[in-house]
Design a protein around this nucleic acid. Structure first.
Length: 475
RNA sequence: GCCUCCAUCGUCUAGGGGACCAGGACGUAGCCCUUUCAAGGCUAAGACCGGGGUUCGAAUCCCCGUGGAGGCACCA
């Protein structure tokens, strides 16, 4: 039985790399009919940000990553919040102390050598005699519990992504297991909980690769089975730097606010570091659950491309049923659009929208024709100039007023044959009409589609306004 | 400083000794379609970091170099 977990610490927002770790852990579980667990790692009292727990739940829900066990979903392995498991860590730390695999350290935090190039350190407290330790304990001196790393030898493990890794013990610090405030460190809590919760596959960022032997030493000290490791490559920005909230890089929730569909984001990040092996790129979460496989995860870090995400978002938008797209688009329509058939507008928009938040700009002209330059009537490819525009707008007015059924098909037939009669190519007729109706160079849909949405009255008004503009400004 | 990892088009990637004068996608350019813009179709430019091996044969295996990244906290 495969059991995976997503174990975020509530210290900020859910960034892209976190979400992908969650996604892969989720997919690995689903793919193997396993169990996906959410565990909150709130062991850092200082960095905890209570609101970010809500962000975690929200992001997971948005992404559709449903967990089988978690703080609000007991599966018999709880509690699933580390701050509620303190006695468990205490007990296990004592066990380690008893075995000599750990020791008490009374050094102060400030004693640690400063600087960028900190050498591997063997703590002086290792050498304290039992008497000395007892004396310090009795005097109430604060202390931490450190792991006793063997001086000699090395540890080798096999990672599913990176293969066999060997680290010399001399490279490993005597890391702190239990802090002086009684809280465990990530390193310790993680090992204890992963074992107690029966995690079979530990999925986490590549940054843990070289400290993994410390974890294995702990597993071995307890006599526990070491889990399978799946270390994931980093996600970076296109300039090679890391994502950083400080520099304004968007979180998952930010991306959603920017008009990206959660489904598209999930699809995109699934592809950052993993590929299906064929040329397919469009996947729903349900489809990913069927094809995901750990052994197709890549080793090298991947750059996040907003351009490609935007394209994929467009693909997802277009794949939506019209009604679903409409429901999403509605939120971006200005209130003035209510007088029109917004479903029809959505239909025009769907194939031309890559990001939801571009919609307001795309539809602004429906509410109001902007003040545009008269030269917008000039378009070489359509063989449109000021004179033809004026002539055509005037010539077309009575025909539009008389048209029985004012819809796209009939408008198109009418205007096309008008052009044929007068010796204009269709584009020459359509250009000035579309311009008069919109006042913008690019519109979602052509002249007749816009006219249908605007309706006969508004269409005639706008064309009349166009005629007047041309007449006054051509003089 | 020490340790570990990584290295194919600008970007995401396929490739795991011969099927590769390296395939797909985004982006870019051009053409087609066309009622503007999109969408769609077609085409083009664009990469195996360098050097040594191993082999009949290397993008694929090994070594060295170079470049990049990560780790070395009472942070996770």
């Amino acid at each position: 039985m495969v059991r995976t977990r997503f174990a975020p610490s509530p210290t900020g927002y859910m960034h892209i790399g976190n979400l992908r770790t969650a996604l892969y852990a989720y997919l690995a579980a689903r793919r193997n009919q396993g169990v996906f667990i959410l565990r909150i790692e709130d062991t850092d009292q200082e960095r905890n940000i209570p609101e970010s727990v809500a962000a975690i739940y929200n992001s997971l829900a948005l992404a559709g990553l449903a967990y089988d066990e978690g703080p609000d979903k007991d599966g018999g392995y709880g509690p699933y919040i580390q701050s509620e498991r303190l006695p468990i860590y205490q007990e296990h730390a004592q066990k380690l102390l008893g075995m000599g695999a750990a020791y008490c350290c009374f050094c102060k935090k400030e004693d640690r050598p400063e600087g960028e190039d900190v050498p591997v350190r063997r703590d002086p407290c290792r050498l304290l005699s039992p008497d000395e330790i007892q004396k310090k304990l009795d005097s109430g001196e604060s202390f931490v519990i450190r792991q006793r790393i063997p001086d000699e030898g090395s540890t080798t493990f096999t990672d599913h992504v990176y293969g066999e890794i060997t680290i010399e013990h001399a490279q490993l610090d005597d890391q702190v297991l239990l802090k002086s405030d009684g809280f465990p460190t990530y390193n310790f809590a993680n090992v204890v909980d992963d074992h107690l919760m029966g995690i079979t596959h530990v999925m986490r960022g590549q940054e843990y690769l070289s400290s993994t032997p410390k974890y294995n030493l702990l597993y071995e000290a307890f006599g526990w089975e070491v889990p399978e490791y799946v270390h994931l490559p980093l996600i970076i920005k296109e300039d090679g730097s890391k994502f950083s909230k400080r520099l304004g890089d968007p979180s998952f929730e930010d991306l959603v606010k920017m008009g990206y569909l959660p489904a598209a984001i999930v699809n995109y990040i699934a592809l950052l570091g993993w590929s299906p092996g064929d040329d397919r790129e469009f996947f729903t979460l349900a489809e990913l659950e069927k094809v995901f496989s750990i052994d197709r995860i890549n080793k090298s870090s991947a750059a996040f491309s907003f351009e490609k995400l935007t394209w994929l978002n467009g693909e997802h938008l277009r794949a939506l049923p019209l009604e679903a797209f409409h429901d999403l688009a509605k939120a971006y329509y200005p209130p003035e659009l209510d007088e029109f058939d917004t479903l029809k507008i959505s239909e025009l928009l769907q194939v031309r929208t890559e990001k939801l938040n571009q919609i307001p700009d795309q539809v602004a002209f429906f509410a109001d024709v902007p003040d545009y330059d008269i030269n917008m009537y000039v378009h070489k490819k359509s063989k449109s100039d000021l004179e033809t525009s004026l002539t055509i707008l005037k010539g077309v007015m009575p025909l539009l007023a008389d048209l029985k059924t004012f819809d796209n098909d009939n408008l198109y037939m009418l205007l096309k044959s008008y052009g044929k009669d007068k010796g204009y190519k269709t584009g020459t007729v359509m250009w000035p009409i579309r311009t008069a109706l919109s006042g913008v160079p690019a519109t979602p849909g052509g002249a007749t589609a816009l006219a249908e949405v605007l309706g006969r009255t508004e269409t005639l008004n706008r064309i009349q306004a166009g005629i007047e503009k041309l007449e006054s400004e051509m003089a």
